[in-house]
Design a protein around this nucleic acid. Structure first.
Lengths: 196, 196
DNA sequence: CGCCGAGTTGAACTGAATCAAGAAACGTGG
DNA sequence: CCACGTTTCTTGATTCAGTTCAACTCGGCG
């Protein structure tokens, strides 16, 4: 029997028997999205969180000038959700899109409540996930406020070396808040420095 | 009997009897900080969250070039904590400072656990606070990625009109990620537009 | 009264965007 | 497996938003 990565993810983080978990996670709603397919788009209220079992997705916005801005990449074992929409029932302003063929678990509020009930440790774990996300966002704000393009890129390379290899360079640029041309020049400059 | 604003804040949000709450919150650790006094500084592990009962505090970093960058303002009824430090027990990289004479409640992990135990609704409320902070941070990242200085300023004015009047302009600039001179020019330009 | 930090203004400068063109990589159908 | 069109990446010339530095004004406070 093949084990779902959502199951093993929860098992290893919740410190409980695999059997207890898989009973709950096996018949979760799952869906496979093709490359470039949208999981979600602005205007709707997003009713669930996505857990990536295989593949890679991104969350992004499009500004009035038509430019894309990437809020988050999510490879295997990451959650993505528009908290604003899921939790506060407001129409989202963000897109969520598969960047590769991607299999996700669809998690709704009800499933979370079931998990909390059956596995008390889940509440604490979920809490930890939220704290972790806040920490990352806070550090990202700080970086956007304080660092130039080159430093932001170097930080990205260090933090997400895997993502770097899986997405087109222009999307890294969009995540960093610079243009594709700008990132191309940053990389050129770094290569020059490394030679000498 | 004078009621603490922390008590009434929890009472109104938790939907429980004021008496139940005040028994818990009355003898919390409280402290008053003078204007400009530091509540906390980098390098230490921050062991508690602050709830502002009266006054105004800010969280900020100082970059290698010596420039300040404000992560958050917190007026009355706001929480401030360095999640990275409190939750993950890591040395913080941020300062927390009183911008006016400020009274705060010091909340440690133990107190949170007591609250969770005695008042079940607190867990959900805390969860809501976390989601709310994520939402705000996410929107701020999006704004930093997509908007020019003028739009960021206008958004700030709309979202925090109260804070705008209580802090020096150079701190608003620091929050927005521009220089004091830059903000001065943005405001001048806006004034010009409004006249015509 | 004199000082000091906050805000303003101007001139020169700089990091990054824009626009445009070409080169390289990629995917798809024949 | 190649040929083609499409997208991605690079490079150059120009422009622009915002910084830096310096001088000056203003208001509060010892």
């Amino acid at each position: 029997m093949k084990e779902f990565s959502f199951t093993s993810f929860l098992t290893s983080n919740l410190n409980v028997e695999a059997n207890d978990i898989s009973a709950l996670t096996e018949d979760c709603n799952r869906r496979v999205y093709k490359k470039d397919e949208l999981l979600f788009q602005p205007g709707m209220v997003c009713s669930h969180t996505f857990f990536v079992e295989k593949g890679l997705i991104r969350q992004y916005s499009i500004d009035p000038a038509g430019k894309e801005h990437i809020l988050q990449f999510a490879p295997e074992n990451w959650f993505v959700s528009d908290r604003e929409s899921v939790y506060f029932n407001q129409p989202s302003q963000y897109f969520i899109q598969a960047l590769e063929e991607t299999q996700v678990v669809l998690i709704d509020e009800e499933f979370i409540r079931v998990l909390e009930k059956k596995i008390p440790a889940f509440r604490d774990f979920n809490n930890r996930l939220l704290h972790n996300q806040i920490r990352h966002l806070q550090n990202r704000v700080n970086l956007l406020l304080s660092a130039l393009a080159e430093d932001r890129y170097l930080t990205f390379v260090k933090m997400y070396p895997d993502v770097l290899l899986r997405v087109p360079q222009k999307m890294v640029a969009s995540y960093l808040g610079i243009t594709p041309e700008g990132l191309s020049r940053v990389r050129k400059e770094l290569a020059r420095k490394n030679k000498q």
